[in-house]
Design a protein around this nucleic acid. Structure first.
Lengths: 128, 128
DNA sequence: ACCTGTCTACACCTTTCTTCGTAGAAGATA
DNA sequence: TATCTTCTACGAAGAAAGGTGTAGACAGGT
């Protein structure tokens, strides 16, 4: 299974929008993209992404509606893995330290993050 | 301060080695790079990185010794920020969930990760 | 039937990335 | 001093990324 979930800068912009909206036509994606690129540019990226297998499309009237075929979760996992490997030398701990200082977190979010760690530890404990 | 701490794939490979070793000559970096590229290719990347301001060099005998000018912490912070924004729609919580399932974590590492969250919460609590 | 607006397909161009090859400087060796 | 080896500098070339323009299909309104 060599998925190779890697995206160029602009491809990622497009995928980001599709993940957020769930799906999108060329016009819908275009409306969300920064630096308003030409219609054909956006179409091109969607076609490239389709060729690479990251999205698929269905006909919708005259237009095409594009759907991600890769879940954001999966893409996120491999993107994080790359960052952890290349920048933090494999340390998830260092990555977390930077992650939490990168933006302000609410008390609620912080609590839920702790719960994630708690549950993971509980699961590991009973596995062993 | 528009640093623009962004690296291409190969540039990141090189930076990763410099961060890990602290510094490196062309030959030292080359020895660590996968797919053993030619000597001049590696030199070229170091020169490009220098031109972009990501590394600097000092003379060391006949050779040049290259040093990162950007700390891994800083680069990591912005890389994580990009991932969180583009893939997890700004949710650090979702990012953490994927981070911890991306690779096995030792009990010790898990405990230290929890401590990071504890300390952050304590700090926020007394700030307010 | 005719014009108008929207959509895809295709071909093209420019810039950046990635990788080398060759030349020449300079210390080390003999 | 002649030769070898190890570096850097420079230039070039192929591939990938990013962005457009034009042509043609097609539905809707008049």
């Amino acid at each position: 299974m060599s998925d190779e979930n890697t995206f160029t800068e602009r491809e990622l912009d497009v995928m980001s929008i599709l993940w957020r909206l769930g799906s999108g036509t060329v016009a819908e994606v275009r409306a969300e993209l920064p630096g308003d690129p030409g219609y054909t540019s956006v179409l091109k990226f969607l076609q490239i992404l389709e060729e690479k297998g990251h999205v698929r499309h269905e006909k919708e009237g005259r237009a095409h509606r594009y759907f991600p075929t890769v879940a954001a979760e999966e893409a996120g996992r491999s993107a994080l893995g790359r960052v952890v490997d290349k920048i933090f030398h494999g340390s998830a701990e260092l990555a977390l330290a930077r992650l939490v200082e990168e933006r302000p977190l609410s008390q609620g979010e912080l609590a839920r993050m702790r719960r994630i760690l708690d549950e993971l530890e509980a699961r590991e404990r009973e596995d062993q």
